[in-house]
Computed example of a mutant assay.
Amino acid sequence: MVVKNVSSEDLDEIFRLYNIASNYQKSKKTVVVWPDFDLEMVTTEINERRQFKLLIDEDIACIWAITFSDEQIWQERNKDAAIYIHRIATNPEFRGHNFVGTIVEWAKGLAEKYKKQFIRLDTIGDNSRLINHYCNCGFSFLGMFDLPNVDELPPHYKQGPVCLFEIDLK
């Protein structure tokens, strides 16, 4: 397994994996389903080297994005030194490999490099299976919160409370 930055040549595969993830969410009848994500947002993440892929034998097994600031979601806690992980999408050919755990280990190295204390992520809605999965990967579940302003966030943030998770590396 190798983690690399995504390139613009990977755009079709990124959106294919997002679509598969959305369809999977629909099939599981989850409360919140990912929308069609904005091409400009993803392209910006690629250009800023904040979109990543996990490769297994040259195949993209998983993708995700990061940021070092997430004020609309984390509000006052955004002042903390943190890495925020977004939109983990797994290639269905590689399901069951606990890529969240792999991403956590990768993020710990990144956190050390950039002197960050926290690794954080969020999800929308009351999905007990996903909440348990993230907790089993080392995250603490901080609770469910209503966000006061979701205007600049992707549309699925308007569909329910946000669940916040973090790993404190101190």
Rank of each mutant, 00 (worst) to 15 (best):
K158H: 04
F68T: 12
I20T: 06
E48M: 13
L39K: 14
L164D: 00
G101H: 10
N23T: 01
E45H: 14
P35M: 05
F165A: 00
N149P: 01
Y134K: 03
N47V: 02
V42A: 11
H97L: 12
Y24K: 10
L142T: 02
F139I: 01
F68I: 06
Y114Q: 03
K4V: 06
S22C: 07
I14F: 06
K108L: 08
V2K: 15
G138F: 06
S22R: 15
C135H: 08
R49W: 02
V6R: 04
D122W: 01
C62H: 06
N19L: 07
R95S: 14
N23Q: 12
D36C: 01
I73H: 02
K115N: 14
G125C: 03
T90K: 13
D122P: 00
D151C: 00
N91A: 09
F15N: 06
E48A: 14
Y114F: 12
L121I: 09
I20D: 10
Q117S: 14
W34Q: 14
Y157P: 10
C137I: 07
Y24H: 06
E45C: 14
D122G: 06
I73A: 02
M41W: 06
N136F: 01
E13S: 11
R95K: 13
P92W: 07
A81W: 03
N132H: 08
D146S: 13
T123N: 08
